[in-house]
């Protein structure tokens, strides 16, 4: 469970924390999209801006980077794949494979862009409460008539709420089966079956209790909306981000 908790909200009082969540979501999308068009100079600029913002917000970057090591492994793999597959003048040659200058450059650019996108997402996740995200979802989906915004927001809260319960139940199920010597059974289909059926059945039994509890408390979608407020600060930030993105694209 620890893996899922580290990259959650971290309290703070920086500009990033205080901006309206709707604006932050918009920034996230705009910056991510424009970074896909960026090259070395604009990428350096973006990295600089991001670094300043992240350090200013006082986020636990070391912990976050440690948590992301699996993602960086994937990026490394992509870098190697790119550097081997793009044709051009070779730098190192080994039998049939050759590392090309163009490949190295392109691989580095693609990986750099993805790191920017990931770091932007990280700064959003670390400075925003999940209840705020939920409220923003409700707000954004409201204009679409056929989408039940409140139900989706409820479902998202339920997901976050249920993940720890599932881990707990999975551990109990695994322990119980080890105690009964399930490791002597080598048939993987049997093991999958015997692990999943009790796990899912128990989780759904809990869900039934939850439904009863919700009905007993007169749950309906006719609820008071969460409060979201935007101020001058948000609009200034919006202008800043739009300028930044225009510089990147042009």
């Amino acid at each position: 469970m620890a893996e899922l908790n580290v990259l959650g909200f971290h309290a703070g009082s920086s500009v990033l924390h205080q901006l309206d969540v709707r604006f932050k979501l918009m920034f996230l999308v705009v910056i991510s999209l424009s970074s896909l068009k960026a090259f070395v100079p604009s990428l350096s600029l973006l990295t600089l801006v991001l670094m300043v913002a992240l350090i200013h917000a006082g986020l636990p970057l070391k912990m976050a980077l440690k948590d992301l090591r699996y993602v960086f492994l994937l990026l490394l793999f992509m870098f190697i794949a790119r550097s081997l597959s793009v044709p051009g003048s070779s730098v190192v040659e080994f039998k049939t494979v050759s590392v090309t200058r163009e490949g190295l450059y392109e691989g580095a650019i693609v990986c750099w862009r993805l790191v920017i996108v990931i770091m932007t997402g990280l700064s959003f996740v670390l400075t925003t409460r999940s209840s705020e995200i939920k409220a923003a979802v409700e707000w954004m989906l409201k204009p679409f008539p056929s989408i039940p915004a409140k139900r989706i927001a409820t479902m998202m809260s339920l997901i976050v709420r249920f993940i720890p319960i599932i881990f707990e139940q999975a551990k109990k199920t695994g322990d119980a089966q080890r105690a009964r010597g399930v490791e002597n059974r080598k048939n993987p289909v049997y093991r999958l079956k015997m692990f999943s059926i009790p796990l899912i059945r128990r989780i759904f039994e809990r869900a039934d209790k939850l439904v009863l509890a919700m009905e007993a408390r007169c749950y309906s979608e006719n609820r008071t909306d969460s409060l979201l407020s935007s101020g001058v600060r948000d609009w200034i930030a919006l202008v800043g981000v739009v300028c930044l993105c225009l510089i990147i694209i042009l």
Binding site: L7, S32, Y70, I133
Partner: peptide, 30 residues
């Protein structure tokens, strides 16, 4: 609906994807 909400939650940065971090980054990743 179930998978759609799962993806939306991940897209918005709730920690539901493998490796911990959510966000658009995961959709742009490999």
């Amino acid at each position: 609906a179930s998978v759609g909400v799962y993806l939306l939650a991940g897209f918005l940065g709730l920690p539901v994807f493998a490796g911990g971090v959510g966000g658009i980054g995961r959709f742009a990743g490999p």
